[in-house]
Amino acid sequence: MKLRIFLLIGLAITAASCGSKKVVTTTPRTKTVVVKDNPIPLNKTKLPVLTPEKRTAKTTINNTQDYVNKFAPIAIREMHKYKIPASITLAQGILESGSGRSPLAIRSNNHFGIKCHKGWKGKSVTHDDDEIAECFRKYKYPETSYEDHSQFLTSRKRYAGLFRLKTTDYKNWAYGLKKAGYATDRKYPVKLISLIRKYNLHQYDYVTPKQLELGAYGKVPTETRSESTAQKNYHTVVKGDTLYSIARKYNTSVASIKKANGLRSNTISIGQQLKVN
């Protein structure tokens, strides 16, 4: 009888000791779970996405004057930041983008026809230019195109001589760009100067940073109704244009355009203004 009692007591002690071991084992496991349930994932910590300093308002561009009024502040800002005449930047934008209405400008906000070149890591589009399906840079905003245009000129040694000129010397800037190889068109400087004079762009070369900040500079007045109507009777040739494509756009014929402009052949050049009706 005594033997049975001793055996039962021994079994009870053994069971109790086993139960205590289970409690000890559970405790650290619970702590481990708590730690794993509350981590701070470092890969979710993101830096804020940088956007352009100032985005231009979404306004309709019906003609070249609209383009000037919209982008003049951007060109002036770039002038004070990079020492490139605002008049030159605007004239190049007008010429290269067809006043913001070329397919390249509409599709990719590329207002200066800048190609991808080696080392470009941004987005791109293909566009027929000197060759078929060439690679051109694509921007999210038009002003990013303006910024990249400034950096393009300042980062290449062949344009270094231009920055010894005054920002009010738009004539030598125009000829200097051609000499440095910016464009292959022999008449490129003449076209830039012509646009600067026609739209009084050189006035922006004299705007101070304070005037820009306050908006207290001589803005070019909006065209009158008669001037706007007259502007629509002309088409500014952009990259990719042909007499046939222009005729289709304005619902006229190639023969009519040639006759109205005194053309003897189908050859046209970028920046040329054609009377279409």
Rank of each mutant, 00 (worst) to 15 (best):
S269N: 14
Y206H: 12
I114P: 01
E78G: 14
N69V: 06
Q211K: 09
L177F: 00
T267S: 14
L11N: 06
I268M: 13
T144E: 15
T64V: 12
G98C: 06
T60L: 15
Y67F: 15
L212C: 05
A105D: 04
N62W: 10
V220L: 13
N277M: 06
A133L: 11
Y234L: 15
G122H: 08
I9T: 04
F112R: 04
N62S: 11
K83A: 14
P209A: 11
T229Y: 11
T32H: 12
W120T: 02
V68W: 00
Q92F: 00
E227S: 13
T26W: 13
I88P: 02
S256W: 01
E78N: 13
R248L: 13
A91Q: 00
T208L: 08
P52G: 07
R137I: 08
A72M: 00
T229W: 05
G262T: 05
Q273L: 11
K115V: 01
Y82F: 15
A260K: 09
D205K: 01
G93Y: 02
I61Y: 04
K275G: 03
Y234M: 12
F112V: 03
Y67V: 05
G218D: 13
D241S: 06
L104S: 03
L192V: 05
K258H: 02
Y159C: 07
E223L: 15
V254H: 01
V33Y: 06
F6Q: 14
G262M: 10
K171V: 15
S245D: 05
S145F: 03
N200V: 08
T51K: 14
V24Q: 15
S155N: 13
V33T: 11
V220G: 06
A15C: 10
T167S: 08
T208W: 02
V254A: 01
T144N: 14
K275W: 10
A255M: 05
K36W: 07
L11A: 14
I76E: 02
H149G: 00
T30P: 00
A260D: 06
L212N: 02
T229P: 00
